[in-house]
């Protein structure tokens, strides 16, 4: 037996597959998967430090619209809100936990504490398979992946140094990068882009809110009940950016428009919810909007909670040189 095991194996494989035929519609299904892949790329284009960093080199400011707050009343509101947020966060030592669900996204969770953060996205739950937008199913994924992590992004401790990390669980890969500094300005295009997705652009909320209100990148737009809690609504000015040519070619869209609104507890002035949306358009892929709503909780800075703010590289994952290879 030992001498001809190769021959037996070959025969066995022939027999095993003799009745196997490819089902029809393989090409069409591959096309649908491909379009989904591009949509996810497009949506992720504007995500966060990664996104901000990834497209920072590529976006060019195209236009802004919406109304900027101005005048004495607005200045007073800015000063008041900023002061209250500062007071709320002053001396606090809290861990930010944001959980979101979105139309194009699976559920996400963001943990942040000072310069550390971990953003994790999950495959959608089972019912997402049936969600249809513009006549196309949004997700097509193996049933056993439901609710499992899809990717993680944030900071990791490697060789005693804090670095940027991007882990994709579906292909067992990860890449490391130098830690990106916070956006130079809360009023920058990159900061606004980050607000359009579940990832957060800052952990310094008082400074962020104060700066966006002061420069007119956002304004106080009212008071809203969020889950029974009275909140002050702060709305960012929508911005539209032209995507980098190479990137635009990949996602078949030329522009992205980002909108966001932040709700801070009217008593504590801690952020409790962030709503954001990113719309890509102007290409052959048509127009797609990904929106998300992130609910925020603030936890004490215990050792266990702080540990949750770091990305862990699972053993056996393959390191690649950049996010582009993932």
């Amino acid at each position: 037996m030992n001498t001809d095991i190769e021959e037996l194996l070959r025969d066995g494989m022939e027999r095993f597959t003799a009745e196997v035929h490819a089902p029809g519609g393989l090409a069409g299904q591959a096309g649908r998967l491909h379009r989904q892949h591009r949509r996810r790329l497009a949506a992720r284009a504007t995500v966060a430090c990664g996104a901000a960093a990834a497209i920072a080199a590529g976006v060019t400011f195209a236009a802004t619209d919406g109304s900027a707050g101005s005048g004495v009343a607005q200045a007073r509101t800015v000063a008041y809100v900023t002061k209250r947020v500062e007071n709320a966060l002053a001396g606090e030592n809290l861990v930010f936990v944001g959980r979101s669900s979105g139309k194009l996204w699976g559920n996400t969770v963001t943990w942040a504490y000072r310069s550390r953060n971990r953003f994790e996205e999950y495959w959608p739950a089972a019912d997402a398979r049936d969600r249809v937008v513009n006549g196309q199913r949004l997700w097509d994924f193996p049933p056993q992946d439901r609710g499992l992590p899809y990717l993680a992004q944030g900071t990791a401790l490697v060789g005693g140094k804090l670095v940027g990390a991007y882990v994709t669980y579906f292909d067992h890969r990860y890449s490391l990068s130098r830690l990106q500094p916070q956006p130079a300005s809360a009023c920058s295009t990159n900061a606004a882009l980050a607000m359009g997705a579940p990832l957060i652009p800052t952990t310094h909320w008082s400074a962020f809110i104060g700066a966006t209100l002061a420069c007119g990148a956002a304004s106080v737009t009212g008071h809203v009940l969020v889950d029974g809690v009275e909140t002050t609504q702060i709305t960012g000015k929508p911005i539209t950016v032209r995507l980098q040519p190479g990137y635009a070619k990949t996602v078949h869209a030329k522009f992205a428009t980002v909108r966001w609104a932040l709700y801070v507890n009217s008593k504590t002035y801690l952020p409790v919810r962030l709503d954001g949306s990113t719309k890509t358009f102007g290409g052959t892929a048509g127009s797609y909007t990904s929106s998300s709503s992130t609910n925020v909780r603030w936890l004490p800075a215990t050792k266990a909670n702080i540990a949750m703010t770091m990305v862990t590289i699972p053993p056996g994952f393959q390191q690649v040189s950049s996010v582009a290879d993932q």
Binding site: M1, I5, L8, L9, D11, G12, M13, R15, F16
Partner: peptide, 10 residues
Amino acid sequence: DLRDALVRLL
């Protein structure tokens, strides 16, 4: 037979 078994073992 062994051929089928080999494929399953594969």
